[in-house]
Design a protein around this nucleic acid. Sequence first.
DNA 1: CTTGACCTTCCAGTGACTGGAACTCCTATC
DNA 2: GATAGGAGTTCCAGTCACTGGAAGGTCAAG
Lengths: 132, 132
Amino acid sequence: MNIAEVARRAGLPPKTIRYYEDIGLIHPDRRDNGYRDFAETHLHKLSFLGRARSLGFSIEECRALMALYEDRGRASSDVKRIAQEHLTAIDAKIAELQAMRDTLSHLVDCCAGDDRPDCPILSDLAGGGCCD
Amino acid sequence: MNIAEVARRAGLPPKTIRYYEDIGLIHPDRRDNGYRDFAETHLHKLSFLGRARSLGFSIEECRALMALYEDRGRASSDVKRIAQEHLTAIDAKIAELQAMRDTLSHLVDCCAGDDRPDCPILSDLAGGGCCD
DNA sequence: CTTGACCTTCCAGTGACTGGAACTCCTATC
DNA sequence: GATAGGAGTTCCAGTCACTGGAAGGTCAAG
């Protein structure tokens, strides 16, 4: 199948798929005319990649997961470790965003948002403290 | 003051400060020997930038905030709008990460994490569904 | 035979830095 | 005055995961 079809079925842009080939994540066949020729296994791998990426795994984590996926004798603990490390990173990121959100939300609440120039948001950013 | 001192006091790496000058966020003076010479106002701006960045504002948002900060006649509603848009973006990001976290956490819980090759994490990524 | 959709490669750009090389400059010590 | 080191400077390249665009080859329909 051509790249457009595998792209459609995997839910990834063709550009991304070419990129994945470029960095060695997939190895589609080539036809005589130079076109890439994707088999069902390639589609399968691309879907796998798409899901892993949408869960926030980095390309290198995906590469590791793919290797484990293709290793019939892998231990599930290897996979679990990668996933758990990733989970920890997500939790940290959420906490960080939550802290940002709280600060910013407080500032927005304090700001009158009218035509006057007094703005607690800018005051706080400037280091002068907010409305407290 | 030299770049190292302003960097220390603003809590930013010297490289970042040079970069900020490069993209026109600050305009420190120059001494005869070519060294950058930072005044208190520059330190102030850099601290402002550092805070805004740590709240997750993009460089372009920071540029807008700086312009508003320096505009004596600005309306606080302009600032509030920028902050509110940013808050919305943060909320979306948190929700996205939370969804990831939930999915991944479920998968991790389902995975035995032992020496056997059966792994619900990989099964799910492959599209076969998890343990449900 | 032409049109237009699809395919190819390659190069450049994104955001916000960061690392490193190669160089100059300042200060202190011998 | 020589030297050593720790500043400072510029410029180039790399990061991550794509994405856009240009220039050109291929294919199916009319």
